[in-house]
Design a protein around this nucleic acid. Structure first.
Length: 813
RNA sequence: GCAGAUAUGGCGGAACUGGUAGACGCACAGGACUUAAAAUCCUGCGGUAGCGAUACCGUCCCGGUCCGAUUCCGGGUAUCUGCACCA
């Protein structure tokens, strides 16, 4: 085989010299914005996951370019984030240094992969030229009331004196020192994504996204319709509001539970219960939300000593605190109906609280508790006999008259917490002044630069707090002494708008030009892992909608079509990780085989959407394929023109396969089905080889087919194809060739088999000319002697003919 | 726990809206070439029985709908993925 990494280098150099991938916004063809989720430069190298995302998608972009689209296919780096900071803490190397190194390495490797990126359109989120505009966007949302500050719990390690990411909390313990992690409240910034909950839900309908991902988002948004009901304190002056989807069971309430963190707890806990309540709250602070709400977890809780009055019947019910109630969902308080709710039932049984039934099955049978199905009311006074759904509305309606309830819609979606007590991120552009309070940094003063000489090792403070030169500033309003916000922005903020910056990445006046963005966006095809289904993909949608409402752009959704590539697992079938020692480095393969063999194998060996365990044996199959192709090209070049120019059956068959290949490869690549596209290309190359076995060869036809063949594999094996293209004596780049079109006349011809079934089981085939009309096919089938025998059988019941597809004879058994 | 997905030969994977299951490859076996090997080329290749035409079984398991089910429905098993401060 002649192909090797040398060939890659030769063509990468030529592409570079001729500026082949230069993007021209005014270029010919319909615009097509093809985007892969940009990469996080956490390591110095592209790993297999990057390759699996980027290489096939690059082939897709190349294919679209050959089809005549004006393809915009940029690449950049999501460069802020925790791993660079952790790496810095471990090694002392500044995050900027390691990030810069990683970016330049990864850029080089993306070029070695053969990516057709125009690096003039690129973003790196850690650069002041970029994060200036991230900060600017924060200010726009702040002005619009979409950014606000409130207290929220964080994971806190007392021994390291630092905030921990969920990822850094292992089984409730600090990843670094192993001591217990507890929840601590800090004042933090939020984006009001909940304002967009309904639209984010509704617009999923118009998106060409995988249904599973839409479902993840639907659940993440978690819309539920219910009622808010007020319970007043019993002989005490307080009230609490509960959210319930089951107002129909209000008469069955036997206690009320509030979240342990609720501010109400201190107010209502009576002295004799104080000690128990305080202890319980401390214990709860150690758990995370998943642990707390796990259904199999034992239902713990304690009584506060206070009671409230059930507004529907005046019952006096006790108020408990329990960790299965979350402060930030609904109202942070629930009414407990043990007879008709699994969790309440378990809790009541454990803590010996009364259970009162109010719903029974419509057939009147005695139900096993807890009964959570549909039914009719009893033990509910004037509501007895009502159906569950009617009762829910009626009860809420009646209570609404005396201001004690209303119908509400509740969302699981919480506002987006964007504050991070971290160093390596974009500073939040806010100033605190003793006189003026919270003051946004004036836009003209952006960017608020991230200081470089900061002690980022954790010692109990946000890293930026330790930089006096950063923290001290003057208030833009009154000119007095002021302090800066020490927290940085969640890196998801950076990545929520990067696709808007790509088309206009050097604009120093604006985040992006509205006209440019409206023309280029939305992204036509967005490719990335499904682990982003909930967070990044919701944040980006929110940001797009928020910026639209603020008048900065004019479309509703950022990504029209979404595709998730699968994941390549280690050879052992587990997720690749350094700790498991099952990682696979692409580089050794590239060195040994060249980029295209590796690309082709990646595309051929796996279902793109599914991935699978790595198996390097398959690479050799690609080596064989490349060898066969080179041989085919050599043979073609060695053939001398002759005077056989007829188109007989053999030629017709070759042309039919050629057009069939064009047709199917076009469909397959268009749908990211690279494995079958390559299989089709193999069939074509097999057909070309088979044709050479004939006595008479139409050389010019054959050579033309070989040319077509090379253009068909050009997007898939870009370097190799250029080499073949040149070998065939062509000038210019194969990349600039037009993607072949199907010739419908040449597609015709040949024969096809019609399966003859008996009771749905294949018995034999009837071969017909593929141009035969469906009616004619039926005649031919019926003329078949074996078919006639079956039709005339005494057990014959009926025949089923699916025109042009299948003939089934039903025989009595 | 909640949510989402997947399951097809020895292996990776095909099969459009229910219509020839296993395309295309890998591995394997036999043959050709070779002093020999590698490479290459040709042939075979889901299982069982049969010399054979062929028959029966077969798409995770159980059941259903249908002339016909890998595909649709109900129930189950196993594996993978995500769960808001990892990106």
């Amino acid at each position: 085989m002649n192909y090797s990494k040398k060939v890659d280098e030769k063509w990468q150099k030529r592409w570079e010299e001729s500026k082949l991938f230069k993007y021209d916004p005014n270029g010919e063809g319909k615009k097509l914005y093809v985007l892969e989720m940009f990469s996080y430069p956490s390591g110095a190298r592209l790993h297999l996951g990057h390759w699996f995302n980027y290489a096939p998608s690059d082939s897709f972009a190349r294919f679209k370019k050959m089809q005549g689209y004006n393809v915009f296919h940029p690449m950049g780096f999501d460069a802020f984030g925790l791993p660079a900071e952790n790496y810095a803490i471990k090694t002392g190397i500044h995050p900027e240094t390691s990030t810069n190194n990683n970016i330049s390495n990864m850029k080089k490797q993306l070029t070695e992969m053969g990516g057709n990126y125009d690096w003039d359109y690129s973003v790196e989120t850690c650069r002041p030229e970029y994060y200036k505009w991230t900060q600017w966007i924060f200010l726009q949302l702040y002005k619009a009331g979409l950014a606000y500050k409130k207290e929220a719990p964080v994971n806190w390690c007392d021994s390291c004196k630092t905030v921990l990411a969920n990822e850094q909390v292992i089984n409730g313990k600090c990843e670094r020192c192993g001591s217990e992690v507890r929840k601590k409240k800090l004042a933090q910034w939020f984006f009001k994504i909940t304002d967009y909950a309904d639209e984010l839900l509704k617009d999923l309908d118009i998106l060409d996204w995988p249904e599973s991902t839409k479902k993840v988002q639907t659940n993440w948004i978690g819309r539920s319709e219910g009622s808010e009901i007020v319970f007043k304190g019993y002989e005490k002056d307080f009230s609490l509001k509960v959210f319930t989807t089951r107002a129909d069971t209000l008469n069955g309430v036997t206690y009320v539970v509030i979240a342990p963190e609720s501010e109400l707890v201190d107010k209502i806990t009576t002295p004799e219960y104080k000690e128990a309540v305080d202890k319980y709250r401390d214990d709860t602070a150690k758990l995370n939300e998943i642990e707390r709400t796990a259904v199999n977890k034992e239902k713990t809780g304690v009584f506060t000593g206070s009671y409230v009055i059930n507004p529907i019947n005046g019952d006096k019910v006790p108020v408990w605190i329990a960790d299965y109630v979350l402060e930030n969902y609904g109202t942070g308080a629930v009414m407990a109906v043990p007879a008709h709710d699994e969790r309440d039932f378990e809790f009541a049984t454990k803590h010996k609280l009364p259970i009162k039934e109010v719903i029974k099955p419509e057939n009147g049978e005695k139900a096993e508790l807890p009964y959570t199905q549909k039914g009719i009311l009893f033990n509910s006074g004037k509501y007895d006999g009502l159906k569950l759904e009617d009762a829910r509305l009626k009860i809420t309606e009646d209570l609404a008259k005396i201001d004690e309830a209303k119908l509400t819609v509740n969302y699981k979606l919480k506002d987006w917490l964007i504050s991070r007590q971290r160093y390596w991120g974009a500073p939040i552009p806010i100033i605190y002044c003793d006189k003026c309070g919270i003051v946004p940094v004036p836009e003209k003063d952006l960017p608020v630069l991230l200081p470089k000489d900061v002690e980022f090792r954790p010692d109990g403070e946000s890293p930026l707090k330790k930089s006096e030169s950063f923290m001290n500033c003057t208030c833009p309003k009154c000119g007095g002494k002021a302090r800066r916000e020490a927290d940085t922005l969640d890196t998801f903020v950076c990545s929520s708008w990067y696709y808007l910056r790509y088309p206009d990445p050097k604009n120093s006046e604006k985040a992006f030009d509205r006209e440019v963005v409206d023309k280029m966006l939305p992204v036509d095809i967005y490719v990335g892992g499904k682990e982003h289904a909930a967070m990044h993909l919701i944040y980006a949608r929110f940001m797009c909608k928020a910026l639209r409402d603020l008048g900065f752009l004019d479309f509703d959704e950022p990504f029209t079509k979404l595709i998730h590539q699968g994941m390549i697992l280690g050879p052992d079938g587990n997720k690749m990780s350094k700790s498991k020692g099952n990682t696979v480095s692409p580089e050794t393969y590239i060195e040994k085989y060249g980029s295209d063999i590796f690309r082709m194998y990646i595309m051929f060996g796996f279902d793109y959407r599914q991935g699978g365990p790595w198996d390097e044996k398959g690479i050799d199959s690609m080596v064989k394929y490349f060898t066969r192709i080179e041989k085919l090209i050599d043979t073609s070049n060695s053939l001398k023109e002759n005077n056989y120019t007829e188109i007989n059956n053999n030629e017709k068959e070759l042309l039919r396969i050629k057009n069939q290949t064009i047709k199917e490869m076009t469909i397959d690549i268009n749908d990211y089905r690279f494995n079958t596209a390559i299989a089709r290309s193999m069939e074509f190359s097999n057909a070309l080889n088979d044709y050479l076995k004939n006595d008479k060869i139409n050389v010019s036809l054959f050579k033309d087919c070989v040319r077509t063949y090379v253009t068909l594999i050009t997007p898939l094996a870009p370097h190799f194809s250029e080499e073949l293209w040149e070998k065939l004596g062509n000038k210019g780049f194969a990349y600039q060739e037009k993607w072949p079109e199907v010739n419908d006349d040449e597609l015709k011809g040949g024969t096809k088999n019609i399966p003859i079934q008996v009771n749905g089981k294949l018995k034999f085939l009837v071969t017909v000319d593929s141009e035969t009309s469906n009616d004619e096919i039926l005649k031919e089938i019926k003329a078949n002697s074996k078919v006639q025998e079956l039709l005339n059988s005494e057990n014959f019941v009926k025949e089923i003919y699916v025109p042009g597809k299948i003939f089934n004879i039903v025989i009595k058994k």
